[in-house]
Amino acid sequence: MSRRVAVVRTGRAGSASLLAALRRCGAEPFFPENPGEVEATTFLALCGAGPFGQAMAALETAGFVEPLRTRIEYDRPTIAIGLGMHLLFETCGTLGGIAAVPGEVGQLPSPHIGWNAVEGEDATLPEGLAYFCHCMATLTEPDGWLASWADHGGPIVAAVQRGTVLGSQFHPELSGGYGERILRTWLMEWASW
């Protein structure tokens, strides 16, 4: 069965990879046109590139902040990738985020670019090597969420999950077979929970 996935973009780079990966998993990505669609559509992916403030401003202009917070509160299947995951948190420095996940995002001492092991004792994500490309990160497990971890000169959060909502610091759409397994699991298995 083909699943339609709303893709919310906050920047121009990076979305082509995600759209292609979703299509390879048999999904039909589309761009939501109004806040109602963002809140109610079954599957939604939030991706982004560029500065945090610019991305939040784009979401606010589109009227998408509140609907995103609501759908996550109601545990609608949502995947937020890279900057998309950062936007879920409460703050990034002095900037406010969607605040669907408790905690903050901060600057890393050096960019984390390349393939690294995703690990976690309680996490529901499989362990494996995933592709990371980021300069900001969160370092603590949010209350009420399960975290997976990666080592970048110290532990950083590789993913946070609660029910069918996944925030992924790494890029499943660029992580070969490992990433595809995660996208397929999100699309096919978690949705039936």
Binding site: G11, R12, A13, G50, Q54, I113, C133, C135
Partner: peptide
């Protein structure tokens, strides 16, 4: 960098 971010 201003538009797409350092990592890109």
């Amino acid at each position: 960098v201003a538009v797409h971010g350092t990592e890109r």
